[in-house]
Design a protein around this nucleic acid. Structure first.
Lengths: 348, 348
DNA sequence: AATCCGTTTCAAAGCGCTTTGAGGCATGCC
DNA sequence: GGCATGCCTCAAAGCGCTTTGAAACGGATT
């Protein structure tokens, strides 16, 4: 069933039917009603590609599946983010187009998106400290918004980010107030902007407290459970082990907890832990009382906001860049407590 | 830059240019080379929608974001599955179209997909024991493949599934051989086919061993960390507590571990645990030695297989249904051991 | 020279929609 | 009666591609 057939069945022209269905005012209410009824009865829906060709819109937002480039890992926040984003895209009649980059040339995908008119805009995930995708997208003129920011990029662009520096500064200060002096940082890959900023916040707090950073207490990698486990074991075996851990991910913190358990240590008493909590639906940080003290910011909510912002950018081509800084909450759970008089230490 | 402009620039007709780029034999090698070069130089790529309109293909595979209907949860396997699937779709020039269902009428989405010609096929996730989507898709004639199966559906359809019954039967037998008699099942939502089959396998093994099932030892819900934690605490406080847990998800098993830790019990000694491991990239079950004894089957690999199969179905419209049963490996980790002489029990 | 054939190229139709510019038809006003 | 005014509807162009059926061309065959 296409427009032509429907129009014939109704004894109307294609124009009138099209106008009726698209809410144009030139159609009488009676006609519109009749057309809508028939469309429903025949199960008519305009062909996406034909409509897109005529309107010049794809009604699709592109996103490259963010894999950690080191290994072939799928970012665990991906699911929740996409759920949030597509929920709000759907309100505007948009769907999400997902693509995986063969090799590492993400730029090529964006150029193709543009040349083929495959999508009306894109969302950029996990930007690097100096992310090249931003300049590329600005240059080729494909509407986009960044989930996060890129410290090293000067030119204007739209972004929505969590105040990572502030979050980790506060978290560190919180630990300092509890008397901790040896605070470890279990961070994500620091070529990524969010991890870079978190370290910055951590270092700022230490510096303000007059504590020099210890390279042995700082590590950075993909945020798996194993990573948290390995590093915790290792750091606890140092001569001067940390009494607290600041950890960029819930998942790695599960590894920390495992290591502490193996060492017979109690979290919140022998060792304190603060995490960043993306509020993932299947990885909740406790129900009422948080398991971990955490800097919390829902990545799903971020997805919703990014979708709305991108819709704005697409609908108003000359819209100035949209930027928005979200503050993470510091929620106190049972994983933190006063620094012990003597640090727990594992035999190395 | 579109076909017309490119053709004019080359002094050729659109036909010839189109044929040259699409590898038709009617074009001389010299011409083809010249055309390809120019296309590259001008950055020409055929417009997706125009091409789609002309060919009748969307070059998109639809997928509805699988949210657990009870709550608004995003399935944790989603990311890895999509990564696997889109990798192989990309090989055929296909992308993935993601959509979120407002409300609960997933059928409406498929009807729309069909009527709008928005996608060339769909992948169905997490089928119910009697899943209505299958009949619908067969009826409307939208090519599809199911990730999993639906016990209650008689009509033919394409699917790729893990042998869940077998996996959980073997896992249960393994525990029985270790002397466990009180084995708990921490299962996913049993309206879903995979969870239904897992319970079936578990029950079969118990029955063969002459052990009657105890409803107190069986529970089913969304597989969060909390769920595993709650249920473990509860079951350990029973008069006759389990000595082993069979758990449908790594995530819930993390909760089991937490509960055991709080109870001062050692996994693999006081209590045994077997999980099903989807081999998620950010939630690996140990490196070399598995953390948990597990029935393992990579969901990402399943995604790759489903993508390939769906491509076959789309390219050969009268292809008979493709079905494939994957066997899960039983990998032995350190979370299982002989049943203790006296079961550990928590005060209730 | 005429015919045939294979190779290469082309003009034009068609995919299903939106949108432009125009026309038909009551109605109201001079 | 004539004409402007709204309201409603329409035919046709155009979006950018593929594909059909035909034509032009050069070389080989008669």
């Amino acid at each position: 069933m296409n427009l032509k057939t429907l129009a014939e069945a109704l004894g109307l022209s294609q124009t009138t039917v099209s106008r009726a269905l698209n809410g144009y005012p030139e159609v009488s209410e009676a006609t519109r009603k009749r057309v809508e009824e028939a469309a429903l009865r025949f199960g008519y829906r305009p062909n996406s590609r034909a409509k897109g060709l005529a309107t010049g819109r794809a009604m699709l937002i592109g996103q490259v599946i963010p894999t950690s480039t080191q290994h072939e890992m799928v970012n665990p926040v991906f699911g929740d983010f996409v759920a949030g984003a597509s929920q709000n895209l759907a309100r505007h009649g948009y769907d999400m187009l997902l693509t995986r980059v063969p090799g590492d040339d993400e730029g090529k995908v964006y150029r193709e998106f543009r040349a083929r008119g495959a999508v009306d805009g894109v969302i950029i995930q996990a930007p690097d400290v100096k992310d090249e995708r931003i300049a590329l997208l600005n240059r080729i003129g494909l509407p986009f918004i960044v989930h996060g920011r890129s410290t090293g990029v000067e030119e204007p662009y739209s972004w929505i980010d969590v105040n990572n520096t502030q979050a980790f500064r506060r978290a560190t200060e919180f630990l300092l107030q509890l008397g901790h002096r040896r605070i470890a940082l279990i961070n994500g890959l620091e070529r990524m902007d969010f991890a870079f900023r978190r370290r910055k916040g951590y270092l700022q707090a230490l510096e303000t407290a007059g504590i020099g950073p210890d390279p042995q207490l700082m590590c950075t990698d993909e945020m798996t459970e194993q990573f948290g486990h390995h590093k915790t074991r290792y750091m606890l075996s140092l001569d001067d082990p940390p009494t607290a851990f600041l950890c960029s991910s819930m998942l790695s913190a599960v590894g920390i907890r495992r290591a502490l358990q193996e060492a017979g240590l109690t979290m919140g008493r022998d060792v304190s832990v603060i995490i960043h909590d993306d509020d993932l639906s299947y990885l909740r940080n406790g129900d009422d009382i948080p398991l971990f003290t955490a800097t919390r910011s829902s990545v799903r909510h971020a997805g919703e906001l990014l979708a709305d912002a991108l819709m704005q950018l697409i609908n108003a081509p000359d819209h100035p860049p949209i930027t928005r800084l979200l503050e993470a909450q510091l929620v106190v759970g049972s994983s933190t407590g006063p620094a012990p008089l003597r640090a727990a230490r594992l035999p190395s």
